[in-house]
Design a protein around this nucleic acid. Structure first.
Lengths: 219, 219
DNA sequence: GTCTATATGCTGATAGAC
DNA sequence: GTCTATCAGCATATAGAC
Protein backbone atom coordinates (compact mmCIF):
# COMPACT_ATOMS: atom_id res chain seq x y z
CA UNK A 1 0.00 0.00 0.00
CA UNK A 2 2.93 2.31 0.51
CA UNK A 3 4.24 1.54 -2.99
CA UNK A 4 3.78 3.74 -6.04
CA UNK A 5 2.48 2.39 -9.33
CA UNK A 6 5.99 1.87 -10.66
CA UNK A 7 6.90 -0.18 -7.61
CA UNK A 8 9.32 2.22 -5.90
CA UNK A 9 8.90 2.50 -2.17
CA UNK A 10 7.42 5.90 -1.44
CA UNK A 11 8.98 7.93 1.29
CA UNK A 12 6.49 7.93 4.13
CA UNK A 13 8.84 10.22 5.97
CA UNK A 14 8.71 12.65 3.07
CA UNK A 15 4.92 12.51 2.92
CA UNK A 16 4.70 13.31 6.60
CA UNK A 17 7.13 16.18 6.27
CA UNK A 18 5.11 17.61 3.36
CA UNK A 19 1.83 17.31 5.25
CA UNK A 20 3.35 18.91 8.33
CA UNK A 21 4.69 21.74 6.21
CA UNK A 22 1.20 22.49 4.90
CA UNK A 23 -0.61 22.18 8.22
CA UNK A 24 1.87 24.13 10.32
CA UNK A 25 1.71 26.88 7.72
CA UNK A 26 -2.09 26.87 7.68
CA UNK A 27 -2.85 26.65 11.37
CA UNK A 28 0.36 27.08 13.33
CA UNK A 29 2.05 24.66 15.70
CA UNK A 30 -0.49 24.59 18.49
CA UNK A 31 -3.61 24.06 16.40
CA UNK A 32 -2.14 21.23 14.36
CA UNK A 33 -2.41 17.66 15.67
CA UNK A 34 -0.18 14.74 14.80
CA UNK A 35 -3.25 12.69 13.88
CA UNK A 36 -4.17 15.34 11.34
CA UNK A 37 -0.68 15.32 9.87
CA UNK A 38 -0.74 11.55 9.59
CA UNK A 39 -4.17 11.58 7.95
CA UNK A 40 -3.13 14.09 5.32
CA UNK A 41 0.09 12.18 4.67
CA UNK A 42 -1.91 8.97 4.20
CA UNK A 43 0.18 7.43 6.95
CA UNK A 44 -0.51 5.91 10.32
CA UNK A 45 -0.66 7.97 13.46
CA UNK A 46 2.29 6.19 14.97
CA UNK A 47 4.45 6.84 11.90
CA UNK A 48 4.87 10.51 12.82
CA UNK A 49 6.51 9.64 16.11
CA UNK A 50 8.45 6.84 14.48
CA UNK A 51 10.17 8.93 11.81
CA UNK A 52 10.45 12.03 13.95
CA UNK A 53 11.00 11.77 17.65
CA UNK A 54 8.05 13.95 18.60
CA UNK A 55 5.74 16.66 17.35
CA UNK A 56 8.29 19.18 18.54
CA UNK A 57 11.10 17.59 16.56
CA UNK A 58 8.88 17.48 13.47
CA UNK A 59 8.15 21.18 13.78
CA UNK A 60 11.86 21.84 14.09
CA UNK A 61 12.54 19.83 10.92
CA UNK A 62 9.91 21.81 8.99
CA UNK A 63 11.34 25.00 10.41
CA UNK A 64 14.95 24.42 9.48
CA UNK A 65 14.05 23.25 5.99
CA UNK A 66 11.91 26.34 5.39
CA UNK A 67 14.49 28.88 6.43
CA UNK A 68 17.55 27.13 5.01
CA UNK A 69 17.94 29.22 1.90
CA UNK A 70 15.97 32.25 3.00
CA UNK A 71 17.44 35.67 2.23
CA UNK A 72 19.91 34.24 -0.29
CA UNK A 73 18.42 36.16 -3.28
CA UNK A 74 19.33 39.49 -1.67
CA UNK A 75 23.06 39.10 -2.28
CA UNK A 76 25.31 42.03 -1.50
CA UNK A 77 22.72 44.76 -1.84
CA UNK A 78 24.49 47.22 0.45
CA UNK A 79 27.76 46.97 -1.46
CA UNK A 80 26.05 47.74 -4.77
CA UNK A 81 25.18 51.32 -3.82
CA UNK A 82 27.28 54.18 -5.22
CA UNK A 83 24.90 57.06 -5.88
CA UNK A 84 21.25 58.09 -5.86
CA UNK A 85 20.32 55.85 -8.79
CA UNK A 86 21.92 52.69 -7.40
CA UNK A 87 20.54 53.51 -3.93
CA UNK A 88 17.04 53.71 -5.31
CA UNK A 89 17.57 50.50 -7.27
CA UNK A 90 18.70 48.74 -4.08
CA UNK A 91 15.58 49.93 -2.26
CA UNK A 92 13.40 48.63 -5.09
CA UNK A 93 15.13 45.27 -5.00
CA UNK A 94 14.79 45.00 -1.23
CA UNK A 95 11.07 45.81 -1.13
CA UNK A 96 10.51 43.59 -4.15
CA UNK A 97 12.02 40.71 -2.21
CA UNK A 98 10.04 41.40 0.95
CA UNK A 99 6.71 41.99 -0.77
CA UNK A 100 7.21 38.94 -2.98
CA UNK A 101 7.85 36.89 0.13
CA UNK A 102 4.70 38.14 1.83
CA UNK A 103 2.30 38.34 -1.10
CA UNK A 104 3.20 35.76 -3.73
CA UNK A 105 1.95 32.31 -2.94
CA UNK A 106 5.00 30.34 -3.89
CA UNK A 107 4.66 27.30 -1.58
CA UNK A 108 8.05 27.67 0.08
CA UNK A 109 7.62 31.40 0.66
CA UNK A 110 4.07 30.94 1.88
CA UNK A 111 5.42 28.60 4.54
CA UNK A 112 7.99 31.13 5.70
CA UNK A 113 5.37 33.86 5.82
CA UNK A 114 2.87 31.81 7.78
CA UNK A 115 5.47 30.55 10.24
CA UNK A 116 6.64 34.11 10.86
CA UNK A 117 3.03 35.29 11.22
CA UNK A 118 2.27 32.55 13.74
CA UNK A 119 5.44 33.19 15.70
CA UNK A 120 4.69 36.90 15.87
CA UNK A 121 1.54 36.55 17.93
CA UNK A 122 2.16 33.16 19.57
CA UNK A 123 5.91 32.72 19.87
CA UNK A 124 7.20 29.18 20.39
CA UNK A 125 10.68 28.25 21.55
CA UNK A 126 11.86 28.53 17.94
CA UNK A 127 10.89 32.17 17.65
CA UNK A 128 14.40 33.37 18.54
CA UNK A 129 15.79 31.25 15.77
CA UNK A 130 13.66 32.97 13.13
CA UNK A 131 14.23 36.36 14.61
CA UNK A 132 18.02 36.30 15.02
CA UNK A 133 18.86 33.98 12.17
CA UNK A 134 16.54 35.24 9.47
CA UNK A 135 14.56 38.37 10.22
CA UNK A 136 17.26 40.59 11.69
CA UNK A 137 19.89 39.97 8.98
CA UNK A 138 17.43 40.72 6.17
CA UNK A 139 16.01 43.78 7.90
CA UNK A 140 19.52 45.06 8.67
CA UNK A 141 20.03 45.46 4.94
CA UNK A 142 17.22 48.02 4.86
CA UNK A 143 18.60 49.66 7.98
CA UNK A 144 21.94 50.13 6.23
CA UNK A 145 20.25 51.55 3.13
CA UNK A 146 18.30 54.06 5.21
CA UNK A 147 21.49 55.04 7.05
CA UNK A 148 22.93 56.13 3.73
CA UNK A 149 20.27 58.85 3.58
CA UNK A 150 20.57 59.75 7.27
CA UNK A 151 24.25 59.26 8.22
CA UNK A 152 24.18 61.69 11.13
CA UNK A 153 20.64 61.13 12.44
CA UNK A 154 20.46 60.57 16.23
CA UNK A 155 19.70 57.00 17.27
CA UNK A 156 16.15 57.56 18.54
CA UNK A 157 14.99 59.59 15.57
CA UNK A 158 16.61 57.15 13.16
CA UNK A 159 14.95 54.22 14.88
CA UNK A 160 11.52 55.89 14.57
CA UNK A 161 11.93 56.44 10.86
CA UNK A 162 13.35 52.96 10.33
CA UNK A 163 10.53 51.26 12.24
CA UNK A 164 7.69 53.10 10.52
CA UNK A 165 9.11 52.73 7.00
CA UNK A 166 9.69 49.03 7.64
CA UNK A 167 6.01 48.72 8.55
CA UNK A 168 5.06 49.68 5.00
CA UNK A 169 5.98 46.16 3.91
CA UNK A 170 5.80 44.04 7.07
CA UNK A 171 2.10 44.82 7.41
CA UNK A 172 1.52 42.34 4.56
CA UNK A 173 2.68 39.39 6.67
CA UNK A 174 -0.81 39.20 8.15
CA UNK A 175 -3.39 38.84 5.43
CA UNK A 176 -5.77 36.09 6.40
CA UNK A 177 -9.42 36.88 5.75
CA UNK A 178 -10.94 39.26 6.53
CA UNK A 179 -7.81 41.37 7.04
CA UNK A 180 -6.80 40.94 3.43
CA UNK A 181 -9.70 43.13 2.34
CA UNK A 182 -8.04 46.27 3.58
CA UNK A 183 -4.54 45.69 2.18
CA UNK A 184 -5.00 43.66 -0.99
CA UNK A 185 -6.39 44.57 -4.38
CA UNK A 186 -8.57 41.80 -5.85
CA UNK A 187 -8.77 43.63 -9.19
CA UNK A 188 -5.06 43.15 -9.91
CA UNK A 189 -2.87 40.17 -10.58
CA UNK A 190 -0.73 39.46 -7.57
CA UNK A 191 2.59 40.09 -9.37
CA UNK A 192 1.35 43.44 -10.66
CA UNK A 193 0.12 44.32 -7.18
CA UNK A 194 3.59 43.64 -5.75
CA UNK A 195 5.17 45.94 -8.36
CA UNK A 196 2.60 48.66 -7.63
CA UNK A 197 3.19 48.45 -3.89
CA UNK A 198 6.96 48.44 -4.34
CA UNK A 199 6.79 51.52 -6.57
CA UNK A 200 4.57 53.38 -4.11
CA UNK A 201 6.76 52.55 -1.13
CA UNK A 202 9.93 53.64 -2.90
CA UNK A 203 8.18 56.80 -4.15
CA UNK A 204 7.18 57.62 -0.56
CA UNK A 205 10.78 57.11 0.58
CA UNK A 206 12.50 59.14 -2.15
CA UNK A 207 10.00 61.97 -1.62
CA UNK A 208 11.58 62.53 1.78
CA UNK A 209 15.03 60.90 1.66
CA UNK A 210 17.94 60.86 -0.75
CA UNK A 211 21.33 59.19 -0.95
CA UNK A 212 24.15 61.00 0.83
CA UNK A 213 26.95 58.56 1.59
CA UNK A 214 27.65 54.85 1.42
CA UNK A 215 30.09 55.10 4.36
CA UNK A 216 27.62 54.32 7.11
CA UNK A 217 28.14 53.67 10.78
CA UNK A 218 26.89 50.30 12.11
CA UNK A 219 23.67 50.01 14.12
CA UNK B 1 -14.80 32.88 51.68
CA UNK B 2 -16.27 34.85 48.85
CA UNK B 3 -16.84 37.85 51.12
CA UNK B 4 -14.62 40.91 51.32
CA UNK B 5 -13.34 42.24 54.64
CA UNK B 6 -16.20 44.71 54.87
CA UNK B 7 -18.74 41.94 54.47
CA UNK B 8 -20.06 42.79 51.00
CA UNK B 9 -20.55 39.86 48.73
CA UNK B 10 -17.85 40.01 46.12
CA UNK B 11 -18.85 39.51 42.53
CA UNK B 12 -17.49 36.13 41.53
CA UNK B 13 -18.80 36.83 38.08
CA UNK B 14 -16.81 40.05 37.97
CA UNK B 15 -13.65 38.30 39.17
CA UNK B 16 -13.97 35.70 36.47
CA UNK B 17 -14.54 38.35 33.81
CA UNK B 18 -11.44 40.24 34.96
CA UNK B 19 -9.30 37.11 34.98
CA UNK B 20 -10.55 36.12 31.55
CA UNK B 21 -9.78 39.59 30.25
CA UNK B 22 -6.17 39.29 31.39
CA UNK B 23 -5.62 35.75 30.18
CA UNK B 24 -7.28 36.11 26.78
CA UNK B 25 -5.17 39.23 26.24
CA UNK B 26 -1.98 37.47 27.30
CA UNK B 27 -2.34 34.16 25.51
CA UNK B 28 -5.31 34.33 23.19
CA UNK B 29 -8.47 32.27 23.16
CA UNK B 30 -7.07 28.88 22.27
CA UNK B 31 -4.18 28.80 24.73
CA UNK B 32 -6.28 29.87 27.71
CA UNK B 33 -8.10 27.20 29.73
CA UNK B 34 -11.17 27.69 31.88
CA UNK B 35 -9.32 26.07 34.79
CA UNK B 36 -6.67 28.76 34.54
CA UNK B 37 -9.28 31.51 34.46
CA UNK B 38 -11.00 30.06 37.53
CA UNK B 39 -7.70 29.72 39.38
CA UNK B 40 -6.71 33.33 38.74
CA UNK B 41 -10.19 34.53 39.72
CA UNK B 42 -9.98 32.55 42.96
CA UNK B 43 -13.14 30.73 41.93
CA UNK B 44 -14.13 27.16 41.28
CA UNK B 45 -13.78 25.58 37.86
CA UNK B 46 -17.51 25.07 37.57
CA UNK B 47 -18.23 28.71 38.32
CA UNK B 48 -17.02 29.79 34.90
CA UNK B 49 -19.62 27.70 33.15
CA UNK B 50 -22.24 28.65 35.72
CA UNK B 51 -21.99 32.41 35.23
CA UNK B 52 -21.23 32.20 31.54
CA UNK B 53 -22.73 29.49 29.46
CA UNK B 54 -19.41 28.31 28.04
CA UNK B 55 -15.85 29.32 27.34
CA UNK B 56 -17.08 30.68 24.02
CA UNK B 57 -19.71 32.86 25.64
CA UNK B 58 -17.15 34.14 28.14
CA UNK B 59 -14.84 35.14 25.32
CA UNK B 60 -17.72 36.94 23.65
CA UNK B 61 -18.46 38.85 26.86
CA UNK B 62 -14.83 39.94 27.19
CA UNK B 63 -14.86 40.88 23.54
CA UNK B 64 -17.95 43.06 23.59
CA UNK B 65 -16.87 44.83 26.75
CA UNK B 66 -13.44 45.61 25.32
CA UNK B 67 -14.68 47.11 22.07
CA UNK B 68 -17.73 48.90 23.44
CA UNK B 69 -16.24 52.38 23.57
CA UNK B 70 -13.44 51.88 21.09
CA UNK B 71 -12.85 54.61 18.51
CA UNK B 72 -14.98 57.13 20.44
CA UNK B 73 -12.04 59.55 21.06
CA UNK B 74 -11.65 60.15 17.33
CA UNK B 75 -14.85 62.19 17.04
CA UNK B 76 -15.55 63.88 13.70
CA UNK B 77 -11.98 64.09 12.49
CA UNK B 78 -12.89 64.18 8.80
CA UNK B 79 -15.27 67.12 9.27
CA UNK B 80 -12.62 69.19 11.02
CA UNK B 81 -10.45 69.56 7.94
CA UNK B 82 -10.49 72.84 5.98
CA UNK B 83 -6.96 73.44 4.76
CA UNK B 84 -3.40 72.12 4.87
CA UNK B 85 -2.93 73.01 8.55
CA UNK B 86 -6.13 71.36 9.78
CA UNK B 87 -5.47 68.38 7.49
CA UNK B 88 -2.07 67.87 9.02
CA UNK B 89 -3.53 68.28 12.52
CA UNK B 90 -6.13 65.61 11.76
CA UNK B 91 -3.40 63.23 10.57
CA UNK B 92 -1.45 63.85 13.76
CA UNK B 93 -4.50 63.16 15.88
CA UNK B 94 -5.33 59.99 13.98
CA UNK B 95 -1.84 58.49 14.25
CA UNK B 96 -1.64 59.63 17.87
CA UNK B 97 -4.77 57.63 18.59
CA UNK B 98 -3.60 54.52 16.74
CA UNK B 99 -0.06 54.53 18.13
CA UNK B 100 -1.36 55.19 21.64
CA UNK B 101 -3.67 52.22 21.26
CA UNK B 102 -0.86 49.94 20.10
CA UNK B 103 2.01 51.15 22.26
CA UNK B 104 0.72 52.52 25.56
CA UNK B 105 -0.05 49.85 28.08
CA UNK B 106 -3.32 51.18 29.39
CA UNK B 107 -5.07 47.96 30.48
CA UNK B 108 -8.20 48.41 28.38
CA UNK B 109 -6.25 49.36 25.28
CA UNK B 110 -3.76 46.55 25.83
CA UNK B 111 -6.68 44.14 25.72
CA UNK B 112 -7.93 45.54 22.43
CA UNK B 113 -4.46 45.37 20.92
CA UNK B 114 -3.86 41.80 22.03
CA UNK B 115 -7.26 40.60 20.89
CA UNK B 116 -6.70 42.17 17.48
CA UNK B 117 -3.18 40.69 17.30
CA UNK B 118 -4.49 37.22 18.14
CA UNK B 119 -7.35 37.49 15.67
CA UNK B 120 -5.00 38.59 12.92
CA UNK B 121 -3.00 35.37 12.80
CA UNK B 122 -5.57 32.95 14.26
CA UNK B 123 -9.03 34.31 13.46
CA UNK B 124 -11.91 33.01 15.56
CA UNK B 125 -15.59 33.36 14.74
CA UNK B 126 -15.51 36.83 16.32
CA UNK B 127 -12.92 38.14 13.92
CA UNK B 128 -15.54 39.59 11.58
CA UNK B 129 -17.01 41.49 14.48
CA UNK B 130 -13.73 43.26 15.24
CA UNK B 131 -13.00 43.81 11.61
CA UNK B 132 -16.33 45.26 10.46
CA UNK B 133 -17.40 46.91 13.67
CA UNK B 134 -14.15 48.42 14.87
CA UNK B 135 -11.20 48.23 12.53
CA UNK B 136 -12.81 49.28 9.27
CA UNK B 137 -14.62 52.37 10.65
CA UNK B 138 -11.48 53.70 12.32
CA UNK B 139 -9.28 52.99 9.32
CA UNK B 140 -11.82 54.57 6.98
CA UNK B 141 -11.11 57.88 8.71
CA UNK B 142 -7.52 57.69 7.50
CA UNK B 143 -8.71 56.61 4.06
CA UNK B 144 -10.86 59.74 3.87
CA UNK B 145 -7.95 61.93 4.99
CA UNK B 146 -5.67 60.46 2.35
CA UNK B 147 -8.35 60.96 -0.31
CA UNK B 148 -8.21 64.67 0.42
CA UNK B 149 -4.65 64.68 -0.92
CA UNK B 150 -5.42 62.34 -3.83
CA UNK B 151 -8.99 63.14 -4.94
CA UNK B 152 -8.53 61.88 -8.50
CA UNK B 153 -6.15 58.96 -7.93
CA UNK B 154 -7.24 55.72 -9.64
CA UNK B 155 -8.55 53.05 -7.29
CA UNK B 156 -5.61 50.61 -7.55
CA UNK B 157 -2.92 53.23 -7.09
CA UNK B 158 -4.82 54.83 -4.22
CA UNK B 159 -5.24 51.47 -2.53
CA UNK B 160 -1.50 50.80 -2.75
CA UNK B 161 -0.62 54.12 -1.14
CA UNK B 162 -3.33 53.71 1.50
CA UNK B 163 -2.25 50.18 2.44
CA UNK B 164 1.45 50.94 2.73
CA UNK B 165 1.00 54.18 4.69
CA UNK B 166 -1.40 52.40 7.04
CA UNK B 167 1.32 49.82 7.69
CA UNK B 168 3.47 52.54 9.25
CA UNK B 169 1.32 52.32 12.38
CA UNK B 170 -0.34 48.89 12.23
CA UNK B 171 3.08 47.22 12.38
CA UNK B 172 3.10 48.08 16.09
CA UNK B 173 0.19 45.77 16.85
CA UNK B 174 2.66 42.88 17.03
CA UNK B 175 5.38 43.61 19.55
CA UNK B 176 5.82 40.56 21.72
CA UNK B 177 9.43 39.68 22.45
CA UNK B 178 11.65 39.34 20.56
CA UNK B 179 9.89 41.31 17.81
CA UNK B 180 9.74 44.43 19.98
CA UNK B 181 13.52 44.81 19.65
CA UNK B 182 13.28 45.98 16.08
CA UNK B 183 10.42 48.46 16.44
CA UNK B 184 10.65 49.86 19.96
CA UNK B 185 13.13 52.21 21.58
CA UNK B 186 14.02 51.13 25.12
CA UNK B 187 15.93 54.38 25.72
CA UNK B 188 12.76 56.50 25.54
CA UNK B 189 9.66 56.80 27.70
CA UNK B 190 6.74 55.19 25.93
CA UNK B 191 4.73 58.42 25.64
CA UNK B 192 7.69 60.25 24.11
CA UNK B 193 8.25 57.36 21.73
CA UNK B 194 4.63 57.60 20.54
CA UNK B 195 5.07 61.33 19.87
CA UNK B 196 8.31 60.71 17.99
CA UNK B 197 6.74 58.00 15.85
CA UNK B 198 3.69 60.14 15.14
CA UNK B 199 5.86 63.06 14.08
CA UNK B 200 7.98 60.91 11.80
CA UNK B 201 4.96 59.29 10.15
CA UNK B 202 3.27 62.62 9.51
CA UNK B 203 6.57 64.08 8.25
CA UNK B 204 6.87 61.19 5.79
CA UNK B 205 3.31 61.78 4.61
CA UNK B 206 3.52 65.56 4.16
CA UNK B 207 6.83 65.17 2.32
CA UNK B 208 4.89 63.52 -0.50
CA UNK B 209 1.25 64.57 -0.06
CA UNK B 210 -0.62 67.80 0.63
CA UNK B 211 -4.22 68.83 1.15
CA UNK B 212 -6.19 69.55 -2.01
CA UNK B 213 -9.91 69.26 -1.26
CA UNK B 214 -12.20 68.17 1.52
CA UNK B 215 -14.87 67.10 -1.00
CA UNK B 216 -13.85 63.50 -1.36
CA UNK B 217 -15.49 60.65 -3.16
CA UNK B 218 -16.42 57.60 -1.05
CA UNK B 219 -14.35 54.42 -1.13
C1' DG C 1 -24.51 30.19 44.81
C1' DT C 2 -20.69 27.47 45.32
C1' DC C 3 -18.56 23.38 45.69
C1' DT C 4 -16.78 18.20 44.50
C1' DA C 5 -16.93 14.61 41.48
C1' DT C 6 -17.23 13.07 37.16
C1' DA C 7 -18.66 12.43 32.05
C1' DT C 8 -16.84 12.67 27.54
C1' DG C 9 -13.61 13.63 24.11
C1' DC C 10 -9.19 14.79 22.13
C1' DT C 11 -4.22 15.32 22.78
C1' DG C 12 0.82 13.38 22.25
C1' DA C 13 3.20 9.31 22.85
C1' DT C 14 4.14 4.28 23.18
C1' DA C 15 3.91 -1.03 23.39
C1' DG C 16 3.78 -4.80 20.87
C1' DA C 17 1.69 -7.77 16.91
C1' DC C 18 2.87 -8.67 12.21
C1' DG D 1 8.57 -0.49 8.69
C1' DT D 2 3.90 -0.26 9.45
C1' DC D 3 0.03 -1.27 11.80
C1' DT D 4 -3.71 -1.59 15.95
C1' DA D 5 -4.59 -0.82 20.51
C1' DT D 6 -3.99 1.79 24.32
C1' DC D 7 -1.86 4.82 27.75
C1' DA D 8 -1.87 9.08 30.75
C1' DG D 9 -3.04 13.82 30.72
C1' DC D 10 -5.73 17.72 30.01
C1' DA D 11 -9.64 19.99 27.78
C1' DT D 12 -14.75 21.64 28.29
C1' DA D 13 -18.82 20.82 30.35
C1' DT D 14 -22.28 19.06 33.70
C1' DA D 15 -24.79 16.51 37.66
C1' DG D 16 -25.79 16.74 42.08
C1' DA D 17 -24.40 17.49 47.22
C1' DC D 18 -24.61 21.24 50.47
Amino acid sequence: MRKTVDGRAKSVRGDILAAARELFAEKGYRDTTVREIARRAGANGAAVNYYFRSKDALYEAVFDEAFETFGRPLGDLVGSVRDQATWRAALEKWFDFMLGLFLLDDPRQALVRRLVAQERSSPTEFCRRIYDGVFVPVVDVFRALLRMALPDEPAESFQAQFATLLGMCTCFIHRDPPWDEIILCPAMEREAWVRTLRDQIVATIVARYSFRTSRVAPR
